[in-house]
Design a protein around this nucleic acid. Sequence first.
DNA 1: ACTATACATGCATGTGCATGCAATGTCACC
DNA 2: GGTGACATTGCATGCACATGCATGTATAGT
Lengths: 117, 117
Amino acid sequence: MGEWRELLARHARVNEALERELERHHRLSVTEFEALQHLAENDVDGCRLQQLVDDVHMSQSALSRLIGRLTDEGLVERRSCTSDRRGIFAVITDAGRQRLAEAKPTHEAVLERTLRD
Amino acid sequence: MGEWRELLARHARVNEALERELERHHRLSVTEFEALQHLAENDVDGCRLQQLVDDVHMSQSALSRLIGRLTDEGLVERRSCTSDRRGIFAVITDAGRQRLAEAKPTHEAVLERTLRD
DNA sequence: ACTATACATGCATGTGCATGCAATGTCACC
DNA sequence: GGTGACATTGCATGCACATGCATGTATAGT
């Protein structure tokens, strides 16, 4: 119970700081950053969207629109999956990789600063 | 970094379960429950709204509307502060205390179940 | 045919930001 | 000491937007 409150406080503290800095310096929300991060890790793989739902903690609809926004910004491309035409690959673009690379130091710095109590 | 992902996952897991069960059984969101909880703890005190902003992790505007919803449901009353007429007391009502008491077992059960990995 | 899966989307809602408004505090100046 | 200008504080609200739920559409499996 005290554990839960501490978890809440910790999460809020880190998340707010991340949100602020990532938005300010790189025009990225936390969820956008994390999606990009996961996409960069799994580069040439299965029908990502479905898997991303598990990685990023988010509903399927929210993810669909998140990918939509990233696509509009040119950071991600949608490619339909030839083996199963229901599936959609979300593939990170060069621009996406660059934006991610720019944001990573900020991300790490904020974690460093806020996670160690 | 792995620590952050674990924090995210943990928070999401507990929060989603809480949200689902509290909503389903008691028509309360997690934030509503927590606001009630804090109000029940500090019963006769200062100009609460301002302090609640610190306790509940939420913007001032979000809190203002949260109290609005709780007030509409009769779980909370707004009382203007006589010593500083800008301030507003949010006071939990009997109905609020009862609703909170009903929800508490659910809340604890979910924590019990989801927090121990 | 019937069910299940993968995404997209209409809709309602909760949130944050910026701002508005009222009450209070502060401080120079007469 | 009183008075008026300006900053600050406590909340409410217009607006934009991200999210979840329910549903729709297309494809695949049985």
